[in-house]
Amino acid sequence: METITNVHRDDEASKLGMWLFIFTEILLFGGLFIVYSIYRFNNAVAFHLAGEELNDTIGIINTVILLTSSMTVAMSLTAMQKGNIRLCLGMIAVTVLLGLVFLTNKYFEWGIKFEHGLYPGSAFLKELGHGDIMFFGLYFMMTGLHALHIIVGLTILVVVAVFIRKGRIRPDKYAFLENGGLYWHLVDLIWIFLFPLFYLIH
């Protein structure tokens, strides 16, 4: 039997693959941002008034949470590269926890909107007129799609943690952790634009 001396592995290429996927995500959300700006341009007054309905405080809290979680996931990669598995797992745990807090806030935020009769297709919204329908349609669509990305990101991070425990991600083989981290940063990146556009600009 011949022994295998060199198993081919190309971490740089898998990272490039991850980035290609991120490009498609940037263009997906980018397209939605263009839709938002065009409708804002056409319905300036309605967007201005509807934007004041959103709770700035929850938006700010969720921004701080996501920015912090982005740092902790970056730190988990540093810990792995330095061979500190315990710290790496700890940082991933903190990231997942912060992601869950973000989703919980989102749950209450949306819940209050629903109670006030604000949800796509609601009778109350239909009375408000075209601009408000567009604003809340885009609000639920874009923050909803973003929340979906949070759920996917959390799932990936849990899988990454399991792989680390099983030794499939190691200090000499951590491409999956790196790429999973990139996905989590993307979620943060999108929120950086969602937050001022929906919560701050009135």
Binding site: S70, M71, A74, L182, H185, D188, L189, I192, P196, I201
Partner: peptide, 20 residues
């Protein structure tokens, strides 16, 4: 709007350069 977008671009650049 301009200020908010410029700051958002600055934040995104920081995330891309260092975190990513």
């Amino acid at each position: 709007v301009t200020a908010a977008l410029l700051i958002a671009l600055l934040k995104a650049t920081l995330v891309l350069l260092y975190f990513m």
